[in-house]
Design a protein around this nucleic acid. Structure first.
Lengths: 192, 192
DNA sequence: TTATCTATATATAACCC
DNA sequence: TGGGTTATATATAGATA
């Protein structure tokens, strides 16, 4: 008796090669995305806009109360340099940097965790072998060798901090702002 | 004895009254929204941008490749002309960003290399054991387990991309060279 | 492309630290 | 406040029509 494969299966988050599958997935997920955005707005009284360009370059949007108002509100967030505002901007930048650093920390923590659980060990070695011709017998790897990985991870982390500081110092960072709120309506449209 | 109800409950899609609950929900759902948007982009090669204003009016965004390029593309090639100074500033920032991205790339590449050479394997495992209580005998690690490491590296890379995108998204950085390609000069709109 | 039907993978509401 | 846990509600991959 044949047993057809039914039900959802786990997929890797990487580009889908089969164009048909990709299109179907795009369509389904786009729907889900718009739906959850809509729910977020309703549940929390938030305003939001989404613009998605399909693989074919076709734009789809959703907005509450509408896309344009959100874009305008967002675009107008960037205040002109104003002496009185300078100090506030500085504070905002600092907060933002802290958030970002936190995000980075969390990501690295997550990565470490996954590694700890051995969830992500498999492909890495394989890839290393493929890309770098590393053929040392895996079962010969001792604690001595494996330990070194943490050094790299730490290095990366430290470098990222430096890198962020550079951004800060060079004032490439622009402050974000706060603003008002509104509500009502919603629109989901396909643009051509 | 009464058993407390754990686990998810069905909720109506209507404004959450309790401010604490609303905040928690906003935070969680926003995360899910950004994540699925990111996945949509990765899986289908789509481009997208999301702008969400929290109930407090604070803006959160996500975009691939970045919010500005998406908005500009959506706004339909708005070839806004910047004045000379603005253009120069843009160019300078753009160069700086490119350098920084280059640095990041090199760091990641270097990290991969080190891992490939097994130079950094040692301490990682040790750290993992120390921090996460992973005590699997190292010499029992097979190719199967070790291969998974590449997934983590890929995850890290992807996360970095996303993270960097966030910087752009939040206007902490300006659009990359690529995203600016589309329009002649401007991607930056100012309100007078 | 759009819709339906599973069987599962995920997201997340309520709770607890 | 932020992180976990758990039980469930939902989303969705794959096959089909």
């Amino acid at each position: 008796m044949e047993r057809k494969q039914k039900g959802r299966k786990k997929i890797e988050i990487k580009k889908i090669r089969d164009s048909t599958t990709q299109l179907v997935t795009f369509s389904k997920r786009k729907y889900g995305l718009f739906k959850s955005t809509s729910e977020l707005c309703t549940l929390c009284g938030a305003d939001a806009a989404i613009i998605v360009f399909s693989p074919q370059g076709k734009p789809f949007t959703f907005g509450h109360p509408d896309v344009h108002s959100i874009i305008n509100r967002y675009s107008n967030q960037t205040p002109q340099t104003n002496d009185g505002i300078a100090a506030i901007e500085e504070a905002l930048k600092r907060d933002r940097i802290r958030d970002l650093n936190k995000q980075l920390d969390e990501q690295l923590k997550q990565l470490e965790k996954e590694m700890a659980q051995g969830e992500a060990l498999d492909k890495m070695i394989k890839e290393l072998q493929d890309h770098y011709g590393w053929h040392a017998p895996v079962n010969e790897l001792g604690l001595h060798d494996l330990e070194k990985l943490s050094v790299s991870l730490e290095d990366l982390k430290r470098n990222m901090d430096t890198w962020i500081n550079e951004l800060w110092i060079n004032e490439l960072l622009i402050p974000s702002e706060q603003s008002i709120h509104s509500s009502s309506l919603g629109s989901n449209q396909e643009v051509d």
